[in-house]
Design a protein around this nucleic acid. Sequence first.
DNA 1: TTGACAACTTAACACCGTTAAGGCGACTCT
DNA 2: AGAGTCGCCTTAACGGTGTTAAGTTGTCAA
Lengths: 216, 216
Amino acid sequence: MSTERREPLDRRRVADTALRLLNEVGLDGLTLRAIARELDVKAPALYWHFKDKQALLDEMATEMYRRMVAGSALDPADTWQDRLLKANRGLRTALLGYRDGAKVFSGSRFTGIEHAGQMEDNLRLLTAAGFTLAQAARALTTAYLYTLGFVTEEQGVQPLPGERREGYDMDERARLMADFPLSAQAGAEIFEDYDRHFEEGLALVIGGIGARYGVS
Amino acid sequence: MSTERREPLDRRRVADTALRLLNEVGLDGLTLRAIARELDVKAPALYWHFKDKQALLDEMATEMYRRMVAGSALDPADTWQDRLLKANRGLRTALLGYRDGAKVFSGSRFTGIEHAGQMEDNLRLLTAAGFTLAQAARALTTAYLYTLGFVTEEQGVQPLPGERREGYDMDERARLMADFPLSAQAGAEIFEDYDRHFEEGLALVIGGIGARYGVS
DNA sequence: TTGACAACTTAACACCGTTAAGGCGACTCT
DNA sequence: AGAGTCGCCTTAACGGTGTTAAGTTGTCAA
């Protein structure tokens, strides 16, 4: 008989396990019972640490963000363009690291205020570069929302890098689109090479920020 | 005894009712049983018309798009900027018309190819204005993804225009953010006046498109 | 030794999406 | 006119879900 007693859970460990499980089973398969099983515990035990499932998802999103920030130290010498590029590339990479990452992320709220550190840093850099605070906020959120929208759509087609969801057969699509030649041709390109397309869109946004706010 | 026989359902009628119900109960409350009750039918009856719940959600998204297109005739004399503005304002308005509209929309796929008409029209206008097809596609999608990301976040805070979700107390937020003065000040602005902020971000994107692709 | 408290388990509830089987009115074919 | 087919729906049920209530167990303090 193993008299070893598991040391008690805490929110971080639960969120960590849930994130690992998320990649195996996806958001739909991420049930409290499955998470509990993985932690060698029964489902109601999770309610000791979280008031409901959404609170657990919130903690998962927060942990995703923590790891993203930890994974990339910011260079104070960055230009504002560099910073926007790095921050949003980093965000996309972080989200792509988990199946349904964008959905989990955008459906949740952070549990603390740790994220404000990065935000503050970015706002400081942009205002120092000549933006007003309102402009800086608008610039950061616009790029952020673009990235979130992009990855959400991307993961709708490609749950994890390499996999591809059904119903996206390009040949059949082309046949149906016979009456819409431009759309057909554009679509064939749109659903591939997400990396390049993301970069291109991000460049559009960043270029627009510089142009409209007269900062370069 | 009422011997009146309901006339049979069809996909459109089901989607229509489901959309109406969505505004009352939200996506979480939108169960097949509730939809069926509204249609004076039992839940399994819906499986005659849809292979599963996702197919119904797809039809709802398609119906949302149909109404959006129907609600705003496009002016062939639009400049490409006008078109991008109108299309994305229209999309946002359409999504805001339903509780959790952005989530339903971005989690679903269109059931037909009706949407290709509008797409084709937009691509034609942009290429005629001097964009290459690839540029036109990138421009349209980037703006589209921004709008989708924006409304998703917006509806996370404000499910329906006028309402406001709990946990967004601005005073408490300011107190917690005492150590992050820029974030505190920016945040106070970010969570209000979504209309203006949407316009501002959209202008950034459109400005970026013009600048980067050298079309004006 | 007692009592409090943190961290769990067991049992149950209401509800969910979905499937299988069957009923029933309307239409067609002979 | 009767039999058979088919579209559209119902009844019943299944396994699974998030969640709650109540009870258990080990640990540590008074």
